[in-house]
């Protein structure tokens, strides 16, 4: 389980005025829970992940349950693969060097239909393939906690849907706690057990919504769409940043 309390996180801004990114944020996740964090852009979603992932330690607050080495997987907005390492080596980079990890990396990549390109360099792959490699890299360590920062942004809708299905399958098999940041409400509703809404900066959780729709679900399932419009009707002010038509996936 994961407990996040961030009293205050600020950046020294360009003008000398400190910019408060997060303030009074509390977030809790059970082990194995899939939590989506949505909020308008600039509300500190990425900052939150960086703090939880230990990339940013200059913060007033504490994170417990994030675990130690080899417990955290991280997927960024870009695939961020090492261009000089082959697909397989990119996945192995983050693992311990045991034979079991090696086998798991291969199995993961083959299951994601990357068996043909194990020895190819990332520069030769399409955007969707690179994301799949990044996803395999995140899961090869069987992380207790998986942090995802809009990992499927700027992909076409079918590719993104396929990746989401892969993510859910891997998550269900692995039992990781997932913290998934997105500005796309429909994506969040399609993936999450629970959606947490952040306010505009300084960000804090303003609504904590369990999603009980049956799995598997897609971003354009009737249930998801119904919940989406119900939320827009109930919390117009809250979702102002997310609710614009066109904020749905595939449209941006």
């Amino acid at each position: 389980m994961l407990d996040i309390t961030i009293t205050r996180k600020c950046y020294p801004d360009r003008g000398g005025q400190p910019h408060v990114a997060l303030s009074g944020l509390r977030l809790h996740a059970e082990q194995g829970e899939f939590v989506c964090v949505v909020g308008p852009s600039g509300c500190g979603k990425s900052t939150l992940l960086n703090v939880v992932g230990g990339l940013d330690r200059d913060v007033d607050g504490c994170v417990s349950g994030a675990g130690e080495a080899h417990d955290i997987g991280f997927m960024f907005q870009e695939p961020r693969l090492m261009p000089w390492l082959s697909v397989l080596d990119n996945v192995l980079l983050v693992g311990d060097c045991t034979a079991a990890t090696r086998r798991r990396a291969r199995e993961l990549l083959v299951a994601m239909e990357l068996g043909e390109v194990l020895d190819a360099f990332p520069g030769r792959l399409s955007g969707g393939m690179c994301r799949r490699v990044a996803l395999a890299r995140a899961f090869v360590i069987e992380p207790r906690l998986l942090l995802m920062d809009e990992p499927f942004v700027s992909l076409d809708a079918p590719t993104a849907n396929r990746l989401r299905a892969m993510l859910i399958e891997l998550w269900q098999r692995c039992g990781s706690t997932v913290l998934f940041v997105t500005h796309d409400l429909r994506e969040a509703l399609a993936l999450a057990d629970r959606v947490c809404f952040l306010s505009a900066a300084p960000g804090r959780v303003v609504l904590d919504l369990p999603v009980t729709l049956a799995r598997p679900r897609l971003a354009d399932d009737a249930g998801v769409l119904a919940l989406h419009s119900r939320l827009l009707a109930e919390h117009p002010d809250l979702l102002a940043g997310l609710a614009r038509p066109g904020a749905g996936e595939g449209d941006d």
Binding site: A69, H70, G73, F76, R80, L93
Partner: peptide, 8 residues
């Protein structure tokens, strides 16, 4: 950052 995130 990838290296740090995965505690390499």
């Amino acid at each position: 950052q990838v290296a740090r995130a995965y505690r390499l």
